Simulated assay, not measured.
Amino acid sequence: MLEALDAVLLARIQFAFTVSFHIIFPAFSIGLASYLMVLEGLWLKTDNPVYLRLFKYWRKIFAVAFGMGVVSGIVMSYQFGTNWSVFSDKAGPVIGPLMAYEVLTAFFLEAGFLGVMLFGMGRVSKKLHFLATIMVAFGTLLSATWILSVNSWMQTPAGFSINEVGQFVPENWWAIVFNPSFPYRLVHMVLAAYLTTSLVVGAVGALHLLRNKTNLEARKMFSMAMWMLAIVAPLQVVAGDFHGVNTYEHQPVKVMAMEGHYESHPEGAPLYLFGIPNEEEQRLDYAVGIPKLSSLIIKHDL
């Protein structure tokens, strides 16, 4: 067993842990920043103190989530150089500038206005404070845009050439940023962030309602969360379908691996619900699947 734990496997395990821990926080904070913007906007428009109290309540939680996301993200970015140094050397001319743009535009924008949003209420005008909240929300979305562009380029690379030392070098930045899978991944991720925030806000509101059904803040946050879920959840189903079809178009082998298929099924692929991969025999042992359903999902054709 210990012999199987080579450097590559250990690097994969470490990076998998880091990225799995990190994604929890941006997935929550992206949506929460937009929720704070909506709450403050509604307070300014209606002068309803319920919205202000909700804003102050969730602002504290956002500060913690944002801080955790920054710290865990820094660790993850270091692992590009420590765990995947050869990849960084080869692909650095393309992904390096993209990640630098994320820091110089989105993160600096968020960090610059975050202090005003957290500590500026009562010290600056209401309009300036609301502008700071808007900029933080916009910064989180801009950050997601750059990071999803990097991730998508690694899946569907475009706009590059390879130099004499084997490095990927940029030829067309427009094609690099807006690579074939980028729009689908970005929409899918942002909707996922809004879903995550809606579920967390809704759960907190439900807990407070169980304790006190007359709690106005709990009723308001629960209602807003449920309306958001009713809108975003169906959109995510559609976006996920588009994303899946796009992945099948550009990375059919990846889709087969995700679905547990070791061979193609010209007459229609089953959707495996359970199975144990057998790499030696190239098959899925103890497979339990629904006939032809995978073909219906991926190609919309039995």
Rank of each mutant, 00 (worst) to 15 (best):
F138Q: 08
V177A: 02
L302K: 07
V232I: 15
P93W: 05
L39W: 04
E281T: 14
L131G: 03
W227C: 01
I134F: 06
G120E: 05
L148F: 11
G166K: 10
H22K: 06
V38D: 10
M228L: 13
V204K: 03
L42M: 09
S72K: 13
L271A: 13
V253W: 10
R219V: 02
K45R: 15
G67Q: 10
P291W: 14
L54Q: 08
E249V: 06
T145L: 09
G81V: 07
I162S: 06
V190M: 06
F62E: 07
A158I: 03
L10M: 13
V136Y: 02
V232T: 06
I95P: 00
A233P: 00
E217T: 04
S88E: 05
A206F: 15
L284T: 10
Q167Y: 00
R59T: 14
Y78P: 00
S161I: 07
A206Y: 14
F138K: 03
P26W: 10
K254I: 04
A158Q: 15
V255G: 02
T140W: 00
G96A: 04
T196I: 07
S152P: 02
S34W: 14
Y272P: 01
I24H: 02
F55N: 03
L284M: 12
W227Q: 11
A269I: 02
S152F: 06
G41A: 05
L44S: 09
K299I: 01
L209D: 02
Q251A: 08
D6M: 08
A111K: 06
F182T: 02
Y57L: 13
L191T: 09
K220L: 10
S34Y: 08
P277I: 10
V238Y: 13
W146A: 04
K213P: 08
F25Y: 13
Y286W: 15
S198D: 08
K45E: 15
L104G: 03
F113I: 05
F119W: 13
V187R: 11
R211L: 11
A192F: 11
A193C: 13
Y35H: 04
L39G: 01
S264P: 00
A225I: 00
E267L: 08
G275R: 03
A33L: 04
P270S: 12
A111E: 09
R123Y: 05
A175Y: 09
M224T: 12
M228T: 12
L284W: 04
V8D: 07
V19W: 12
L36W: 14
M121A: 05
E263Y: 12
V255I: 13
M99G: 14
A144H: 01
K292T: 06
E171K: 12
G73H: 04
D301R: 14
A27S: 09
G268Q: 05
E171D: 15
I74R: 04
A257F: 09
L207A: 14
W173E: 05
W174H: 12
D6F: 13
H250E: 08
I95L: 14
T18I: 14
G112W: 04
S125K: 11
A225G: 01
G73C: 04
